[in-house]
Design a protein around this nucleic acid. Structure first.
Lengths: 333, 333
DNA sequence: GTGAAAGCGCTAACAG
DNA sequence: CTGTTAGCGCTTTCAC
């Protein structure tokens, strides 16, 4: 049975209000009382009850980060960015993983609302079907990351997916590729759509035709990338260039290429979105569109805490630059 | 301003108590009232305030998972195991990342206590210095995973690190390695210590001498594995076998070997703990000690929820088997 | 079966 | 500057 503020007050021979004042440091308290309170707190091992405090103040100091796939190495670094900024402002960060599942996502947004979290950073499972009304109804600020949320008028931090995909495609074309394939993400995600559009723009700019057979949809996961690659390799005329829309699918694609004895970059030049930790050890070294992952998290936390602090301005979209890092995998001499 | 239980009660022309009874379904309520309540709940978009409920019932339905390094691919799958079990029992799971930092760890345990989480699964940053008293004092059940917590008498789920390291070492010896090196984890972690002891036992069983120069401590991170490997390669007589105590360090080790032009397995046979997602695409395929990661999470959640449910028995330690998966990286013909 | 009332632990408002 | 009082939203006696 943990000590309550009344226990501390009794032990320090002051009122509960004084204990509260000492602990929250808003109001000046005489030094002697302050010392007595601190002593009592230590002696009793008192920890304020966050539930009671949150109930009373109608605000907690916990931020929720709801991400779409915890196995994607993209997120850890983003979370670090969030944490570093949040903790410097006295907030704690808890994570939840939706697994790209709208039902789980809804459940976690409900948890965030029920626990009255101060704010939420969300990587939406779907740009169209994700429903954030449970947060807005409770006045809980939200920042979208990675994927846009067109329906809701909320802050967001993204990269310029269109330009990045276009640049990657043009790079492949400049390497002499004539049949550049794309493994696209789910049409439900803005990321998937923008990267597809950028790819098409890159083909046009390079004077290459757009062959629907060269575009495969997959689910942003390893298995999807693997299957899509097998499908692409089974086409009449194999592609000579491949752009993969995220890192997990790239993993699957590389595995499929390897199993099929396709040489990278000899037979097919290869570019993917998002680095992963193994990139430096992989041979050939990979050409990747590298996102400023940590910075995405940091900026998202910054936007969010501004809202938590009462900022009521119009929704802000922050677009950070992604960088095409050229390795051996796309280099056809 | 979200709707409260009183709003719902007023709208349904019943008392708040009745609304509560309907929502929690413990007590029978007349069908007509029940329908009115449900209608009001939907119409007002009512969500019970978890803080108020938790304050009143002295229990929440949130489990905390506090892990030591979110960038380690070991954890996501474990978390899945926790989530799957927890959600089937009506609990939500939130994560926190300590980054192997005792200060962050303490802060998150305090958050868990302040938020009165129902229970905590912890991968301790240090077997000796991690302090879980803030949880025990509040009666919050705890399950340790991956690393033991010798000071505290708590439940835990682990693998048999000693046996696994020994088996891996004997495997290397059986491949003809005479100078088997180990990149060990921090001595602060039980995992690091047990794997070291198992390695030594493996050497003894294989009739090989134990050369302290062949053992390097590192920090379970990529950079540490990289540096340790460079150090090992700089010794007078290079090792011909290498066992690495976790996946992230293995990544660094592989990078160092590659940069130094050391052939795997030709010059050095290689085994590491924990698979990672890229393992299938890596050539040579890796020999790894594979942990039942998902199962570790599932069992941890199971133990934890038993405690949450009031189980007061003695501390249980679950030891799951790890499996040596032999690939090309350790095969010297 | 249902309502009224009390109280979980805390802080904000109000006196003093 | 400090104490008293009230109440955040919910569940749980206790009456009826």
């Amino acid at each position: 049975m943990p000590a309550t503020i009344r226990d501390v007050a009794a032990a320090a021979r002051v009122s509960p209000a004084t204990v509260s004042r000492v602990l929250n440091g808003k109001v000046e308290v005489a030094e002697e009382l302050r010392d007595r309170v601190h002593a009592a707190v230590t002696r009793l091992g008192y920890r304020p009850n966050g539930l009671a405090r949150g109930l009373r103040t109608r605000a907690t100091t916990v931020l929720g980060v709801v991400i779409s796939d915890i196995t994607n190495p993209f997120f850890p670094l983003m979370v670090r960015g969030v944490e570093d900024f949040a903790q410097s402002s006295g907030y704690s960060v808890v994570l939840a993983n939706t697994d790209e599942d709208l039902v789980k996502e809804r459940r976690y947004l409900e948890v965030a609302a029920a626990e009255r979290m101060a704010g939420v950073i969300l990587s939406p499972a779907s740009s169209r079907r994700t429903d954030v009304s449970v947060l807005t109804r409770h006045g809980i600020p939200l920042v979208a990351v990675d994927r846009e949320l067109p329906g809701a008028d909320v802050d967001g931090v993204f990269i310029n997916n269109h330009a990045a995909a276009r640049e990657a495609t043009e790079h492949l074309a400049a390497q002499g590729c004539r049949r550049i394939a794309l493994i696209a993400g789910p049409s439900a995600t803005s990321t998937g759509e923008r990267r597809l559009a950028g790819y098409r723009a890159g083909l046009r700019a390079s004077g290459l035709p757009s062959d629907p057979e060269l575009v495969r949809r997959a689910d942003f996961r390893v298995g999807g990338g693997y299957q899509a690659t097998l499908d692409l390799l089974a086409t009449r005329e194999r592609p000579d260039g491949l752009l993969v829309s995220n890192n997990l699918m790239a993993l699957g694609a590389l595995q499929a290429l390897q199993e099929q004895g396709v040489d990278v970059p000899g037979d097919i030049a290869f570019v993917s979105f998002d680095g992963i930790s193994w990139a430096p050890t992989f041979r050939p070294t990979l050409t990747v569109v590298e996102q400023p992952t940590y910075e995405i998290g940091r900026r998202a936390a910054e936007l969010l805490l501004a809202r938590v602090g009462g900022d009521r301005g119009p929704a802000r979209k922050v677009v950070l630059p992604a960088e095409l890092k050229i390795g051996q995998s796309s280099s056809r001499r």
